[in-house]
Amino acid sequence: MEPDYLQQYKDYYRVRAERFANNTNYKFSYEAESNLSNAMHSCNELIEFKDKIGNLNEICANALIKDEHIMEKAFYEKHKEEIRVLAADRILENLDDCTNTEELTTLVIEEMNKNSLEISMDEYQREFQGDWGQLDEIEIYENAVVPGNYKGEMQSVVEEVQKSIIEGNESTENEARKFQPDYVMKPELNKEHRHRRLIPYADEHLDEQLEKYKSLIKR
């Protein structure tokens, strides 16, 4: 006996929609999948689905991407990741314009690649965090009480460390400019939460180090 394909597809689309039932993270998918399932269930013959499906499948794909990027956006907003959230922001802003999965895939991949570059550029600014120890070294050698005959050597160490910081910044800036020609180091950005959370020092100490750093690298 020939299988009842119509009933089998009705069962399949029903189960497909039920996957997202009662999951608040997937409410758009649930709605889109339910619409697709309803379209199938309204068919009396399989051939009717050819017209009734319309773009419901594409809407399901968009809904899934929407749900997933809403989760992503919520995560990055919660952690004040102002740069990492940009991919989700732009995808959510533009995905309703996608009319097929090819456009949707292109949108997602392009935005992810773009964002990956934005993140790299932003995290180059953490050079300051890596240089914190060197700023301390300058402070240590400038203030250490030592016999007078070592003063010159102590000052040489200070100058060497200063030079190392300046050259390190120039090198990082030049490296970043290969990817973004107008790139400029902005150590002040380390006060923003996404960088700040990784700095285990009090605000007053951060301000103090930033002042010293900015005057040293002239940025």
């Binding site: 240590i140 250490a144 070592y150 285990p200 020092y201």
Partner: peptide, 18 residues
């Protein structure tokens, strides 16, 4: 012998300060 006490005091100061 000559410079380490001065350096140690500074490192100590920073540990306390931070």
């Amino acid at each position: 012998k000559d410079i380490l006490p001065g350096i140690i005091k500074q490192k100590e100061r920073l540990l306390l300060k931070y």
